[in-house]
Simulated assay, not measured.
Amino acid sequence: MEVLLLALLLCAGSSVAQDLWTANMDIIAELQKLKHMDERIQKLEETLTKVMSENEALKTLVQDSQSKLETVQKESEAKKVAFSAGLLASGSKQTGPTNNLTILEYKKVFSNVGSAYDSNTGIFTAPIKGAYYFRFYAHCHGKITMAVSLVKNGVTQCSVYAWKPVSNGNGSNGVILTLEIGDQIYTQLWKNTWVYDDPESYTSFSGFLIFPL
């Protein structure tokens, strides 16, 4: 009887030990799974951090590219400078004489690329540094003196002149000037002289940028 009890106890102990061993193995396996999962999460976080960093770098690169593109576009637009205008927007009349030098205001604007010419003042203002070409024409009737000068910042550059011609008088002149940003160019009627214009635009003023400097 004692032998039988001992045998039963040994069997029960063996079963319990087997169960404990199996439970421990399951726990170890689960712990290993958790460890692998933690490693995968860590790698995923590292990858995500790297992607976010690359995304910020790409965003900065795109912003820099857009800024450079806008700068290039603005510079390209600034290089497009040209205008041409006749003295009268409509009708026919003599302009002058006056007792002072008078800036001629050309109202009939044919083109004004870059908007550097102001028809309200007759003044062209250089938007960028560069070499510019200007040309102007003046017309008068017979027995009337006509004199017009091209002026840069208050200094005469070249002129046209006709002293009381027998019939109509005409004159034209042109010059290439190196201008800084903000330099002003205009034509000026001498005192006690006249110019004439009508829809044919005999008296006109034109200029354009040859190349920037």
Rank of each mutant, 00 (worst) to 15 (best):
V16T: 11
A17N: 12
Q18A: 09
Q18T: 06
D19I: 11
L20V: 14
T22L: 13
A23E: 11
N24I: 04
N24A: 13
D26V: 07
I27L: 14
I27G: 03
I28Y: 15
A29K: 07
E30Q: 08
E30D: 12
L31D: 09
L31V: 11
Q32C: 06
Q32N: 08
K33E: 09
L34E: 06
K35G: 03
H36Y: 07
H36A: 07
M37L: 09
M37S: 12
D38V: 06
E39M: 08
I41N: 13
I41W: 15
I41V: 10
Q42L: 09
Q42F: 03
Q42M: 12
K43I: 08
K43W: 12
E46S: 10
E46T: 03
L48H: 06
L48P: 02
L48F: 14
T49H: 08
T49E: 11
M52D: 12
S53D: 10
S53C: 09
E56A: 12
A57W: 04
L58W: 11
T60E: 15
T60V: 03
T60S: 15
L61R: 12
V62Q: 14
Q63C: 05
D64R: 14
S65H: 09
S65K: 12
S67M: 07
S67V: 01
S67I: 01
K68M: 06
K68I: 02
T71F: 06
T71E: 13
V72S: 02
Q73Y: 01
Q73W: 01
Q73I: 03
Q73T: 03
E75W: 00
E77L: 14
A78G: 07
A78L: 09
K80T: 03
K80D: 05
V81I: 03
V81K: 00
V81D: 02
A82V: 01
F83H: 00
S84Y: 02
A85L: 00
G86P: 01
G86L: 01
A89E: 12
S92L: 07
K93W: 02
K93M: 08
T95W: 05
G96K: 02
G96Q: 00
P97F: 01
T98P: 03
T98G: 13
N100Q: 06
N100L: 06
L101H: 12
T102Q: 02
T102P: 00
I103T: 14
I103C: 05
I103E: 03
